[in-house]
Design a protein around this nucleic acid. Structure first.
Lengths: 243, 243
DNA sequence: CGGAGCATTGAAAAGTATCAAGCTAAGTGG
DNA sequence: CCACTTAGCTTGATACTTTTCAATGCTCCG
């Protein structure tokens, strides 16, 4: 019997929400879920919508329900770097500090579920399991950030692009990219434009485009319509991603 | 009256330890400190000593008491990237996962205080304050990692080297680099060799050396003996670090 | 004194960025 | 319905930064 069929006492809002299973809210009891839901807002945003500005006082945190949120940092002269991508059911926000240091922006159309920072911080104090989940998520984000530091600092443009495609593929379908299934093909939509991929990989648009063309020419991927990509052979892509 | 003069009931080991104030152990009661100290080892290591190998099962966590620990990741062909520098009283280890994914190595001579992962994980379960401290530290590391992602992806070699010097200066003396004191000079020893700086900044040894020479020629820094650096004017260095 | 390990410097090569056209697809208005 | 526009992408030629390769210098230590 599935957990999510038990919806007695659970807010309608949360009934089919992924964050209740794999995300933060999994740490909450039904009662706590009801309490949190009282100050919760579910909202949709188109891509490009800035959810949290760089300098904003962050008064609300969010869970990503669908779509992709990009976290960016910008130098004073406009150079930009994407420092994280949040997929469902990731948490977005910086607890224990009111200014954010990163800007959060919808990369695709997204749905998020947001709640006041105060509410979360209060509930964290009375429910250690919540802080535990947050620690787990933060540790995972740190692992990811460090993986990308290696890519940014030490990989070539070709390896960066291959690594990026692999990361996206992995997020779309974790099973297809590991172990036995790694020799099958996999199709997906890129959640980022060429320019955003460039900002993620520390490259220019042109270099990203050229590397994608090379992968296409080499028969590693097919590009159906700039956003839709088919990886013909995941293991061959992985071989180009650099150890 | 100073806290650290109260040493009644506190293990000798911990009496003068920074981790008890600014670090993890600050979350512990005297009794808990005693319990942790029972399975604690204080150890010195020379620079170059590998504290935690890449693939090791990590059975112990540590606090850095003095010196600098570098966290590195290595690609299969040997390319290396430093993904973090831990200063006293930082925590070293990856809770909730037995393999580490990063290697921890003494960059300078270091003193660390280590304890079994089991002990910490047990104490975390019964003392939420401990998990809170760990979350704070992890969030800070994540902020730092993301700052460096911007440097790695978007800054020029000159900006990277200036940013690095500034970061070190900040760690040596937080006061001297911010606000009013930013126009004064500051001297310190680099905790890393040229090769390590290169691995931190995603550059080659030669490029790091050339950029340091340029800063010296421009009168921004003096280099006394390859390791010892005097920043003549911190704000002038900051101007070269890229907004 | 001589060697070993870093560090610096120079010259050439490579990789990526920049500049400049075109191209494609999707929308807009005649 | 079709020219027109626009935004994002691709492709090409050139410039520039950084790497690579090579040689020399410095400093610590046996």
């Amino acid at each position: 019997m599935r957990d999510d069929i038990h919806t007695k006492g659970i807010p309608v809002l949360c009934a089919s929400c992924e964050a209740r299973h794999r995300g933060l809210c999994g740490a909450l009891s039904d009662d706590q879920l009801v309490e949190l839901a009282r100050s919760t807002m579910r909202q949709k945003a188109d891509d490009g919508k800035v959810l949290v500005g760089d300098e904003d006082e962050v008064e609300r945190f969010s869970n990503v329900l669908s779509g992709v949120v990009k976290l960016t940092k910008t130098l004073s002269d406009g150079r930009q770097q994407i420092v994280g991508l949040q997929f469902a059911p990731d948490f977005v926000g910086r607890p224990f500090r009111s200014e954010s240091s990163v800007s959060a922006e919808a990369a695709t159309g997204v749905e998020v579920c947001s709640f006041p920072r105060r509410t979360l911080e209060r509930m964290m104090a009375e429910q250690p399991g919540l802080e535990h989940r947050l620690l787990q998520q933060t540790l995972r984000e740190l692992d990811e950030a460090r993986d990308w530091m290696v890519a940014l600092g030490r990989k070539t443009a070709a390896e960066k692009v291959a690594s990026f495609l692999l990361m996206i593929a992995q997020n779309i379908d974790p099973a297809a990219t590991e172990g036995q299934g790694a020799d099958r093909s996999q199709a997906f939509d890129l959640p980022l434009s060429r320019g955003e991929i460039a900002d993620f990989l520390g490259l220019t648009i042109e270099t990203v485009s050229r590397q994608l063309t090379r992968l296409r020419t080499a028969g590693v991927i097919r590009i159906e319509n700039t956003r839709h990509v088919v990886v013909e052979d995941v293991s061959r892509l992985a071989a180009r991603a650099g150890g």
